[in-house]
């Protein structure tokens, strides 16, 4: 039998995961035993100054070692950290251009998520690099109407090592930062929360 749809889907899924691996890094806080994942983020959108976004519970120290998907290892410094939102931003002392196997994440700001949409997570569980899992959006909307939801909730398995990595839609656009499993569901910090947090974190401090 031939199965053109399934074959095509498998090929597209593999390609989407490869694309996501380019934007996913391994984050190891200095002196910490465990490591997590992170997303190469370009806040200005002009490829000038790169950040790595990860969870605060992954970037537990002021310094961290970042391993890119091509194996290159660089040091990075935590420039913002928020334990309540479980977010951290690290500054990379690196020009990404020669690292063709790495790139900045495409972020999806719109359209809003729909329940049932496919989602893909990439992370580094244990010794495995760039593992992927597939699921769907479990629910959308916050606990109260009109309030930005705190989490993207997905019916998708995450293992330790996925923390800080990307949750992406079927087109490979990042929709959240994977943070934890809770009640059998994957919880990710929505990209809108990451972006507004970054804007506030990078604004000059009021004196």
């Amino acid at each position: 039998m031939t199965a053109p749809t399934t074959t095509g889907l498998a090929r597209e899924l593999a390609a989407a995961v490869d694309e996501l691996r380019r934007v996913t890094v391994r984050v190891q806080a200095s002196g910490a035993a465990a490591s997590g994942a992170g997303v190469l983020w370009d806040p200005a959108g002009d490829d000038t100054r790169g950040l790595v976004i990860t969870n605060a519970h992954v970037a537990t120290r002021a310094q961290a070692t970042i391993r890119l998907s091509d194996g290159a290892v660089v040091r990075a410094r935590v420039v913002a950290r928020d334990r309540k939102r479980d977010l951290a931003a690290l500054e990379l002392d690196l020009d990404l251009e020669p690292h063709t196997a790495a790139g900045f994440a495409h972020v999806r700001d719109a359209p809003p998520l729909r329940v049932g949409e496919l989602v893909i997570a990439v992370g580094h569980p244990g010794d495995v690099s760039g593992a992927a899992t597939l699921g769907i959006v479990h629910t959308v909307g916050g606990d109260r109407a009109g309030v930005t939801p705190q989490w993207v909730r997905a019916d998708l398995p995450l293992a330790p090592g996925f923390s800080g990595g990307p949750l992406a839609d079927a087109s490979g656009r990042v929709i959240g930062i994977n943070t934890m499993m809770h009640g059998g569901l994957a919880l990710a910090v929505p990209v809108t929360v990451v972006e507004s947090w970054l804007r506030r974190a990078q604004a000059p401090a009021a004196s």
Binding site: E12, A16, V115, G116, L118, V137, A170, S171
Partner: peptide
């Protein structure tokens, strides 16, 4: 290209929306 993957995603979301009514 992720045309099939996007179609599958859209169809799943549409099934949820239709069933959810």
């Amino acid at each position: 290209m992720t045309a099939l993957l996007e179609s599958l995603s859209n169809e799943l979301a549409a099934a949820v929306e239709s069933g959810g009514r």
